[in-house]
Protein backbone atom coordinates (compact mmCIF):
# COMPACT_ATOMS: atom_id res chain seq x y z
CA UNK A 1 0.00 0.00 0.00
CA UNK A 2 1.22 3.47 -0.76
CA UNK A 3 0.23 6.77 0.70
CA UNK A 4 1.16 10.21 -0.63
CA UNK A 5 0.68 13.63 0.86
CA UNK A 6 2.35 17.05 0.97
CA UNK A 7 2.66 20.11 3.21
CA UNK A 8 3.60 23.72 2.55
CA UNK A 9 5.99 25.03 5.20
CA UNK A 10 6.82 28.68 5.73
CA UNK A 11 10.48 27.85 6.45
CA UNK A 12 13.61 27.67 4.37
CA UNK A 13 14.51 24.28 3.00
CA UNK A 14 17.76 24.06 5.04
CA UNK A 15 15.89 24.47 8.31
CA UNK A 16 13.48 21.72 7.39
CA UNK A 17 16.28 19.45 6.30
CA UNK A 18 18.14 19.98 9.57
CA UNK A 19 15.06 19.14 11.55
CA UNK A 20 14.55 16.00 9.55
CA UNK A 21 17.95 14.87 10.74
CA UNK A 22 17.59 15.87 14.34
CA UNK A 23 16.69 13.07 16.69
CA UNK A 24 14.94 15.43 19.07
CA UNK A 25 12.64 16.57 16.33
CA UNK A 26 12.12 13.05 15.13
CA UNK A 27 11.38 11.74 18.59
CA UNK A 28 8.71 14.35 19.16
CA UNK A 29 7.23 13.64 15.76
CA UNK A 30 7.04 9.85 15.71
CA UNK A 31 3.65 9.02 17.21
CA UNK A 32 4.04 7.19 20.49
CA UNK A 33 7.83 7.40 20.45
CA UNK A 34 9.20 6.80 23.93
CA UNK A 35 12.86 6.44 23.10
CA UNK A 36 15.05 7.37 20.17
CA UNK A 37 18.81 7.08 20.29
CA UNK A 38 21.33 7.53 17.56
CA UNK A 39 23.56 4.49 17.26
CA UNK A 40 25.36 5.51 14.09
CA UNK A 41 25.10 8.52 11.79
CA UNK A 42 22.17 7.14 9.92
CA UNK A 43 20.77 4.63 12.34
CA UNK A 44 18.72 5.14 15.46
CA UNK A 45 17.22 2.69 17.89
CA UNK A 46 13.64 3.31 18.82
CA UNK A 47 10.87 2.30 21.16
CA UNK A 48 7.37 3.19 20.16
CA UNK A 49 4.13 2.59 21.95
CA UNK A 50 1.21 2.15 19.63
CA UNK A 51 -2.37 2.32 20.78
CA UNK A 52 -5.07 1.41 18.35
CA UNK A 53 -8.41 1.05 20.03
CA UNK A 54 -8.15 -1.45 22.84
CA UNK A 55 -4.80 -2.71 21.54
CA UNK A 56 -1.69 -1.29 23.09
CA UNK A 57 1.74 -2.61 22.13
CA UNK A 58 5.29 -1.50 22.47
CA UNK A 59 7.45 -1.88 19.38
CA UNK A 60 11.21 -2.06 19.59
CA UNK A 61 13.25 -1.49 16.52
CA UNK A 62 15.33 0.76 14.38
CA UNK A 63 14.99 3.89 12.38
CA UNK A 64 17.22 4.25 9.34
CA UNK A 65 17.94 7.25 7.21
CA UNK A 66 18.94 6.47 3.65
CA UNK A 67 19.10 7.91 0.14
CA UNK A 68 20.33 11.09 1.77
CA UNK A 69 20.29 13.96 -0.67
CA UNK A 70 20.71 17.14 1.36
CA UNK A 71 18.71 19.25 1.46
CA UNK A 72 16.32 17.73 -1.03
CA UNK A 73 15.20 14.69 0.88
CA UNK A 74 15.83 11.21 2.12
CA UNK A 75 14.11 8.01 2.97
CA UNK A 76 13.28 7.41 6.59
CA UNK A 77 12.38 3.87 7.43
CA UNK A 78 11.49 2.15 10.59
CA UNK A 79 10.90 -1.39 11.54
CA UNK A 80 10.10 -2.91 14.83
CA UNK A 81 8.78 -5.96 16.52
CA UNK A 82 5.97 -5.86 18.97
CA UNK A 83 6.54 -9.31 20.40
CA UNK A 84 3.40 -11.37 20.26
CA UNK A 85 1.62 -8.70 18.21
CA UNK A 86 3.94 -9.22 15.29
CA UNK A 87 6.03 -6.71 13.48
CA UNK A 88 5.55 -3.52 11.57
CA UNK A 89 7.68 -1.61 9.20
CA UNK A 90 7.25 1.44 7.13
CA UNK A 91 9.22 3.85 5.13
CA UNK A 92 8.63 7.37 3.95
CA UNK A 93 10.37 8.87 0.98
CA UNK A 94 10.54 12.52 1.89
CA UNK A 95 11.16 15.20 -0.72
CA UNK A 96 11.75 18.83 -0.01
CA UNK A 97 11.53 21.52 -2.60
CA UNK A 98 11.58 25.28 -2.56
CA UNK A 99 8.27 26.98 -2.97
CA UNK A 100 7.90 29.28 -5.93
CA UNK A 101 8.13 32.35 -3.71
CA UNK A 102 11.60 31.08 -2.80
CA UNK A 103 10.97 31.31 0.95
CA UNK A 104 8.84 28.39 1.93
CA UNK A 105 9.37 24.68 1.46
CA UNK A 106 7.13 21.98 0.11
CA UNK A 107 7.48 18.77 2.03
CA UNK A 108 5.99 15.80 0.29
CA UNK A 109 6.12 12.20 1.29
CA UNK A 110 5.27 8.81 0.03
CA UNK A 111 4.74 6.09 2.58
CA UNK A 112 4.87 2.35 2.34
CA UNK A 113 3.88 0.17 5.24
CA UNK A 114 3.83 -3.49 6.01
CA UNK A 115 2.69 -5.48 9.01
CA UNK A 116 3.37 -9.04 10.01
CA UNK A 117 1.98 -11.61 12.37
CA UNK A 118 -0.98 -11.14 14.62
CA UNK A 119 -1.69 -7.55 13.68
CA UNK A 120 -1.91 -8.59 10.03
CA UNK A 121 -3.96 -11.66 10.84
CA UNK A 122 -6.47 -9.93 13.07
CA UNK A 123 -6.43 -6.31 12.03
CA UNK A 124 -6.26 -6.35 8.27
CA UNK A 125 -9.21 -3.99 7.91
CA UNK A 126 -7.29 -1.36 9.86
CA UNK A 127 -3.82 -1.63 8.34
CA UNK A 128 -4.26 0.91 5.61
CA UNK A 129 -6.11 3.49 7.64
CA UNK A 130 -3.70 3.12 10.54
CA UNK A 131 -0.63 3.52 8.36
CA UNK A 132 -2.11 6.58 6.77
CA UNK A 133 -3.06 8.00 10.10
CA UNK A 134 0.35 7.42 11.64
CA UNK A 135 2.12 8.94 8.67
CA UNK A 136 -0.14 11.95 8.83
CA UNK A 137 0.46 12.28 12.52
CA UNK A 138 4.20 12.05 12.11
CA UNK A 139 4.32 14.83 9.58
CA UNK A 140 1.76 17.01 11.27
CA UNK A 141 3.70 16.63 14.55
CA UNK A 142 6.84 17.47 12.66
CA UNK A 143 5.29 20.57 11.15
CA UNK A 144 4.01 21.62 14.57
CA UNK A 145 7.41 21.09 16.14
CA UNK A 146 8.93 23.23 13.43
CA UNK A 147 6.43 25.98 14.06
CA UNK A 148 7.44 26.14 17.72
Amino acid sequence: MEIKESYDLPLPIETVWQALNDEGFLKNSIPGCEKLERISPNELSAEVKLKIGPMSTRFKGKVNLSDLNPPNGYTISGSGTGGIAGAASGSAKVSLSKMEDGEGTILSYQVKAEVKGKIAQLGSRLIHSTAKKLAKKFFSNFVQELAK
Binding site: G53, P54, M55, S56, T57, I84, I119
Partner: peptide, 23 residues
Protein backbone atom coordinates in the same frame (compact mmCIF):
# COMPACT_ATOMS: atom_id res chain seq x y z
CA UNK B 1 -0.36 2.36 35.88
CA UNK B 2 -2.41 1.42 32.89
CA UNK B 3 -5.89 0.69 34.14
CA UNK B 4 -8.73 -0.01 31.76
CA UNK B 5 -12.44 0.24 32.23
CA UNK B 6 -14.23 -3.02 31.67
CA UNK B 7 -17.80 -2.65 30.44
CA UNK B 8 -19.35 -5.50 28.44
CA UNK B 9 -15.90 -6.82 27.61
CA UNK B 10 -16.93 -7.75 24.08
CA UNK B 11 -14.07 -5.77 22.59
CA UNK B 12 -11.66 -5.62 25.48
CA UNK B 13 -11.60 -9.27 26.52
CA UNK B 14 -10.80 -10.68 23.05
CA UNK B 15 -7.97 -8.15 22.82
CA UNK B 16 -6.62 -9.30 26.17
CA UNK B 17 -6.93 -12.94 25.20
CA UNK B 18 -4.83 -12.22 22.14
CA UNK B 19 -2.29 -10.55 24.43
CA UNK B 20 -2.57 -7.37 22.43
CA UNK B 21 -2.89 -5.28 25.57
CA UNK B 22 -1.49 -5.71 29.04
CA UNK B 23 -3.35 -3.50 31.49
Amino acid sequence: KEGKILAGGMTLIPTLKQRLANP
